[in-house]
Each structure stands twice: as C-alpha cells, then as structure tokens.
Simulated assay, not measured.
Amino acid sequence: MTVFLLYRARAPMPGEQANVQPAADKFGDSGQAGVASAGLSVADATMRGSLRELEVVMKSVLIAAATVGVAIALSPVAAAEPSWTMPNLIGMDLQGAQDAIQSLTHGEVWFSSSTDLTGKGRAQISDRNWQVCSSTPAPGAKFSVSTEIDFGVVRVSEDCP
C-alpha cells in the first residue's frame, strides 16, 4: 500500500501540475505511478487534498467559533443600571421631593416632571409653592436612571384630590 502526502504551499496555477509527494518515494516508488495505481489522476489527488485541507480549516473555524461563543457566554454581564426604591414623598413640597430624589440617587437622577392634578394645566414656577399628592412610580416601587418620574401636585393652599 502506498501512502501519499499531499502538500501545497499555494494552490496550483492553471496549467501547473500539483505537487504530489508520495511517502514511498524513499523506497523508489513513483508518485505518478502511485496516484495512477490508486485510480486517481494528479488533479483528483490534489482535489482530495484540497478537500482535506478545507475540512481541517473548517474544523478550525468551528472550534474557534465555539471557543468565542463559550467565552462570550461565560463573560460577566455588563453591570445592570443602578436602581432605587421610590420613597414616600406625598405631602412634601415639590422642591423638597425633587431634592430627596437627587439626594437618594447621588445626583444620577436629576430630572423629574410634575403635573397639576386640578386639571387646570398650571405651570409649577416656584416648586416650594406646590405639594406632592402622588408620584409615578408609586412609593415603594423600584426606579432607575431611565425611569420617568412624575409628581402629581396642587398648590400648598389646596387639598389633594
């Protein structure tokens, strides 16, 4: 039985013969004769060698992809957005409620909106003149930097609806 070692530093150019080196050359056997006796042409032997090389490359790619996939799966998850529990700010003036949120979140949440609960659509110009009647999110609920905070308010001289 003759064993052939097919190797190529590069693919053969058109019209160029493939580089086939039989392992049995040491013993005087001819590469061309060995390929022919196996029922193959040099092109067949080269193609089969190319397919083996392709198989090896594809296996390497799959192993690399699997390794990357495992590395991604095992990598730590990005730190979750910090969250806080909404305090009960009902009854406070609007400015005090806003200050409490900023203090609780160490300045990470600096904006909150407010809504006139009388339905008159009044703007809250001086926040100390408005009292908080409700909050979204509700007291005890979790909120984060991306949570929209809204205080339902009326003037300090008015009763909460």
Results as ranks from 00 to 15, higher is better:
E53G: 15
R128S: 09
L89G: 00
M58W: 12
K59R: 15
S37Y: 08
Q98W: 05
R8D: 05
G140H: 13
A138Q: 14
K26L: 05
I72M: 12
S75M: 07
Q32E: 11
K59N: 14
D25E: 11
A71D: 02
V57S: 09
E148I: 10
D116F: 00
L89F: 00
A138K: 10
M1L: 07
S144W: 06
P76T: 13
A9M: 10
A33Q: 13
D29P: 03
K120P: 03
Q32H: 08
V153W: 00
A79G: 08
F27D: 13
S83Y: 10
S60Q: 12
L5Q: 12
D93M: 01
W130Q: 09
I101W: 05
Y7G: 00
A123R: 04
S83A: 15
A36W: 03
F27C: 02
V154H: 07
Q102H: 06
V20C: 04
Q131E: 03
C160Y: 02
Q131S: 10
E148P: 07
A123Y: 00
K26S: 07
G140C: 10
E53L: 09
M58N: 12
S103K: 07
S144I: 08
M92T: 02
A43N: 10
A78K: 14
A79F: 00
N129T: 08
A141S: 14
W130S: 10
E108Y: 04
G15A: 06
F4G: 00
G31A: 09
L54G: 11
V57L: 08
T46I: 08
N88I: 00
V61P: 08
P137Y: 09
E53P: 06
T46E: 14
H106R: 09
L104I: 04
S144M: 11
Q102L: 01
D25A: 05
A100D: 01
A9Q: 12
F27R: 07
G69N: 15
A80F: 04
S103F: 07
M58Q: 15
I101A: 06
A123I: 01
Q32M: 04
S157F: 10
A97M: 05
K59W: 11
A73V: 02
R128A: 09
S103H: 04
L5P: 02
G34L: 03
L6D: 06
S113I: 02
K59D: 15
A43H: 05
P139W: 08
W110N: 03
Q17S: 13
F151E: 00
V68P: 03
V3K: 15
R155I: 03
A65T: 13
N129P: 06
V3Y: 14
A18K: 01
N88V: 00
G140Y: 11
T118W: 06
A18E: 01
T118H: 08
C160R: 01
V154A: 11
S112P: 02
Q98T: 01
M47I: 14
L89T: 00
I149H: 10
T85R: 05
R155N: 13
